[in-house]
């Protein structure tokens, strides 16, 4: 067993864990962040996507020990003061969540895009979600949701919340 200390969604955690444990299994099974979804477990589908030190990663192929002294954000950490992030609002408004299993991963990827490109093209959107798979194949609504999220975010910047 090894000891690690890290910050998840603004909260400090200390844990003792097996060295081979993935960040995905650690976040779900030891800390209870079930918004991190288990799907392919090989880094191909993006359902387990989180931010590690601000970077988008697949937590299934990230060693939990590599997050020692680091900062993790999961989908549970996107809302602030009880208010959903524009990407989350947009996914609800457009019905982009179908079975919903891939949704947290898509939301994490979409937010990274909007942080860097507030007004993305459809190609920018397709690029950033290429690491996320939707088994319902509902990509059209997902792309619409991300476009709507960009509009909401711009409107918030212009008019305030």
């Amino acid at each position: 067993m090894i000891e690690i200390a890290l910050n998840v969604n603004g909260k400090e955690h200390h844990a003792s864990l097996q060295p081979y444990l993935s960040l995905m299994d650690f976040l779900r099974d030891m800390l209870g962040y079930k918004g991190v979804k288990v799907c392919c477990s090989t880094g191909e589908c993006g359902a387990c996507t989180v931010y590690m030190n601000g970077k988008l990663v697949n937590s299934c192929v990230t060693l939990a020990a590599a997050a020692d002294s680091g900062e993790i954000t999961t989908v549970e950490g996107l809302a602030s003061n009880g208010k959903l992030h524009p990407v989350q609002i947009a996914f609800i408004e457009t019905g982009a969540s179908q079975c919903g299993y891939c949704t947290p991963g898509f939301i994490m990827s979409a937010k990274v895009l909007l942080d860097e490109h507030p007004n993305p093209t459809v190609d920018d959107i397709k690029d950033v979600i290429s690491g996320n798979i939707c088994r319902c194949t509902g990509y059209t609504k997902i792309i619409e949701a991300i476009q709507l999220a960009a509009s909401i975010q711009l409107a918030e910047q212009v008019y305030g919340d």
């Binding site: 060295p19 081979y20 993935s22 477990s41 880094g43 192929v61 990230t62 020990a65």
Partner: peptide
């Protein structure tokens, strides 16, 4: 192990080494 994108898959589905060097 560095990024882990290959080795994590090996450790889950194939073999676990006796010694892991991060």
């Amino acid at each position: 192990i560095a990024g882990g994108t290959d080795l994590m898959v090996d450790m889950r589905f194939k073999d676990q080494p006796d010694c892991l060097v991060n």
